[in-house]
Design a protein around this nucleic acid. Structure first.
Lengths: 328, 328
DNA sequence: CTGAAAGCGCTAACAA
DNA sequence: TTGTTAGCGCTTTCAG
């Protein structure tokens, strides 16, 4: 910038004015400055600008895994809102590791992002307190924060799971299995609670062997499904707790001789073309991201100062697999 | 930091040393400084650090759409490599709009990212020349850059498409349709070229009505597929140019009475459970991202100074839809 | 309308 | 081992 000023034969501030489109510069002067800018290939250094102005016009998004088809659309939705507010998006995957989550969040804070959208991996976010006090806008999505008072945007995991399981019960099932993610994950616990509630509402006692929570890698899920299908009191239907689990269970059921009913949490592309079509409890990942990001910028604009908990509804989509009658 | 120094009763530089884990500080002093840091909830301002050091330890990734299942894994792979090098990832979606791509890239440069991974939307990247000269490491992925000399990492679109179409020909098809993305997109053009090459190798003259290039929104693709299937000289097989097109064509074929063969570029989750299973030419999105990111950090480390063009192989996976015989 | 000077928070270079 | 000084590139303030 100094070089530009020298070359154009003007003061530093004048260049700054031109670069930022501020008023108060003669067209003639502006032309000279612009010429120097082009000649020198100058581009403003935003780091310096940030240092001076305080705001970085960037927000951070910490999620579990960018490669998961659930988070892609969520991330894109956050990005679109950020873009509308002139901000860039920095994102990182926690890989469901609380330490890595904290590391990422703090790295983002060190860069002075204006705000943070976090899908928590851990369940204690007191490490964020200094940042919150320092004014970093923060919204938690998909799962609530632990031990801090902040905005949260969730899907109705409990209600969704309850409806899904009730749907299976309505189609005659009584021996229904539940396979979900690790119990420390809020959504997994809530969905299990929904399962229990639906069973209880129908007066069906639940067997321990019908429930399986744990990591969602294919081997574990496959084993869990097979045990439910072949053990004593074999299930005639399965409710799966998220898209990763659902995909694996679909594969297991494809190899299984009897028509086992299935309802999955989260929608899956091409679900309608499977045989049978996959019945799901769908949540709107994009809406989750959009809502969270809008709250975030609300905070930044000075409105929305009281932390709120927003719960988005889920939608049951019947496509066949959830309407299969119990096998004899 | 000044405050911390004051509170700990030490000089500024000593605090800097503690914060950065530099040697040359008495344990006792370090303890006092650490105490002050905790008490004040201090955290280093990386913007200032960047301003001083020149490097931001962040890289930018510009892609088409983070919500596309092809780009999620690619993005995650770039992130992992960045993480291994202690860098954060800023990413943005160009929505296949060259202007938006440029806008994003320049915004990233203004923030002085150390490097850039770009999946080009436009075909002229001369706007990047000043940045390249200024030392911003850059790697293009999935499509080559226009009019600038830089690293490129690609899949073998031409060879993959040629193999896929040859596969259909080997199964007896002669009237084969091609539906792809806009012709200005390099991968789309290359895949069309592969299609033509396979047809020519087999001595099959190609009809104009068998080829359709354009936006990949479902309506356009659906119309294109239906025209090929019902027009004069109806096709008995279709080759689709990317995952978005494939998904729509699968839906169209599901409604179609005759068994039309299909081979798609890009793999799709659960493709093996469709009826028939989907035959694809798979490319490895994660490998694409990983390779690109590794080249990027190679540039930053001072090796790998000569721009190179790396082409990754594709793999044909036969699952049924591509082995269907021509309908009578 | 324009410019000089101060300073954002940090680190490099040097001095004590 | 520790502290002082200068300055990264920009914006703010205030004077011309």
């Amino acid at each position: 910038m100094k070089d530009v000023a020298a070359r154009a034969g003007v003061g530093l501030k004048t260049v700054s004015r031109v670069v930022n489109g501020e008023p108060g510069v003669t067209p003639e002067t502006e032309r000279r400055v612009q010429e120097a800018i082009d000649a020198l290939g100058f581009r403003r250094n935003d780091s310096a600008r940030v240092l001076r102005k305080g705001r970085t016009a960037s927000i951070g998004l910490v999620l579990e895994d960018l490669a998961d088809p659930f988070y892609g659309p969520l991330s894109r939705a956050v990005e679109e809102v950020a873009r509308a507010h002139g901000a860039l998006l920095i994102n990182g995957s926690s890989a469901e590791d609380p330490e890595r989550e904290q590391e990422l969040v703090l790295a983002l804070c060190a860069r002075r992002v204006d705000g943070l959208v976090v899908i928590p991996a851990g369940d204690d976010h007191r490490y964020l307190e200094p940042e919150l006090k320092a004014g970093v806008a923060t919204v938690f999505v998909d799962r609530p924060a632990g031990h801090v008072d902040a905005d949260v945007v969730l899907s109705d995991s409990f209600g969704g799971a309850r409806d899904g399981v009730a749907h299976l019960i309505a189609h005659g099932h009584r021996r229904i299995g539940f396979i979900g993610d690790m119990p420390r994950i809020h959504t997994a616990a809530e969905r299990l609670r929904g399962y229990r509630a639906a069973m209880e509402d129908a007066g069906i006692p639940v067997r321990e062997s019908w429930m399986s929570l744990g990591v969602t890698d294919p081997e574990r899920v496959r084993r869990a499904a097979e045990e439910m299908l072949t053990g004593p009191d074999p299930v005639t239907a399965i409710f799966t707790g998220n898209n990763r689990v659902t995909v694996t269970v679909i594969r297991v059921l494809a190899e299984h001789p009897h028509g086992v009913a299935l309802v999955g949490f989260d929608d899956i592309e091409l679900a309608e073309l499977l045989r049978p079509g996959l019945t799901v409890v769908a949540q709107d990942a994009a809406a989750l991201g959009r809502t969270a990001a809008e709250r975030l910028f609300g905070q930044l604009d000075g409105d929305l100062l009281v932390p709120e908990r927003i719960e988005l509804p889920t939608r049951l989509i019947a496509r066949g697999s959830g309407e299969l009658p119990p096998a004899p």
